[in-house]
Simulated scan of single mutants.
Amino acid sequence: MGFSIGNAALRLVSGAFILNSGIGKLHLEQEHAAGLQAAAARVIPPAGTLEPDKFGKLLSASEIGIGTLILLPFVPTRLAGLVLGMFSGGLVATYLKSPGMTKEDGILPTPAGTAMAKDFWLAGIAVALFFRRRRQ
C-alpha cells in the first residue's frame, strides 16, 4: 500500500468538505432540519418518521463520521471511495428527486438546483478512489 498524492488530495478535499458540513449542522434550527429531512425522505422514506431535531443530529453525526473516515490515512482508499460513493449517491438521488432542482430534461440544474448539482463532484471522486489503479 503506497502513498499517492493524488489520492490524498481527493480524500482531503472531499473529507474536509463533508466534515465541515457535518460540524455546521451540529446546531440546526428545527425548520432547517425539517427541510433537510423532507428532501432526504424522498430518497429514504423512513427518514421522514424521525423527529426533525433527531434527524438533524443523526445527519450531523453521519457527516462528521463519513468526513473523518475519508480523511483518516489508515483507512484503505477503496473503502473510503466506497463510503463516499454511498454518501454521494444519496446526495445525487436527492437532487434528482427534489422538485424544481432540474430542468425539464431531469439532469441539468435550474438556478435553484445548482447548489445541489455540485454533489456530482463527490460521486466523481468516489469513483476515482474506488477504481484507482493499484501499484505493484
Rank of each mutant, 00 (worst) to 15 (best):
V75P: 01
I107A: 04
A126D: 02
L122M: 10
E104W: 04
L108G: 01
G124K: 07
K54D: 13
I66C: 02
A126Y: 04
A33Y: 06
F74W: 11
I70V: 15
A9T: 14
A38R: 12
S4R: 13
L129Q: 05
A33I: 07
L69E: 00
T102W: 07
A16Y: 12
F74Q: 11
R132I: 12
P109K: 12
A80F: 03
T94K: 07
A112K: 15
A126I: 07
R78N: 07
I64D: 00
A38N: 07
G85T: 05
G89E: 01
L72K: 08
N20C: 14
S62N: 14
I23G: 05
F120T: 09
G89T: 02
L91S: 04
D105Q: 08
N7W: 08
S62V: 09
I70C: 02
L28K: 05
L72E: 01
V75A: 04
P109E: 03
K97A: 13
T68M: 13
A61S: 13
V92S: 01
G35Y: 06
K25S: 02
A115L: 11
L84S: 03
L12P: 00
A80D: 01
G124C: 11
N7A: 11
S88D: 00
A93S: 14
R42P: 06
A8K: 09
P99R: 12
M116S: 14
G6E: 03
S21N: 03
W121K: 13
T49N: 11
R133Y: 12
V127L: 11
S62E: 07
F17K: 11
T77V: 14
L36Y: 04
A115G: 13
G48A: 09
A38M: 09
I125A: 09
Y95T: 10
P99W: 03
Q30E: 12
L108A: 13
G65M: 13
T94D: 00
E104S: 15
L28S: 03
V127Q: 02
D105N: 14
G67A: 06
A115H: 10
I44F: 15
T49D: 07
L58H: 12
G35A: 12
A40H: 06
G48K: 10
G100A: 10
G48W: 06
A112N: 15
P111Y: 09
I23H: 04
A93I: 09
T114H: 14
E31S: 13
L108D: 07
L91T: 11
L59P: 03
N20E: 01
D53N: 14
A47Q: 06
L10C: 05
A34I: 07
G22W: 00
I5Y: 05
F87I: 05
R42F: 05
G15M: 03
G100S: 08
I18K: 02
F131W: 11
G48L: 08
P46R: 09
S21Y: 01
V83N: 01
A39Y: 05
M101D: 05
T110C: 10
I5P: 06
L71D: 00
I18L: 03
L108T: 15
A38C: 10
A41N: 04
G113D: 00
D119A: 06
L96I: 07
L96N: 04
I23P: 04
G6W: 08
A47P: 07
K97F: 11
G85E: 01
V92C: 02
G67R: 03
W121S: 15
A33T: 09
A115N: 12
F131A: 12
T102D: 00
P46W: 06
G81W: 04
H32M: 14
I23L: 14
I66V: 15
A115V: 15
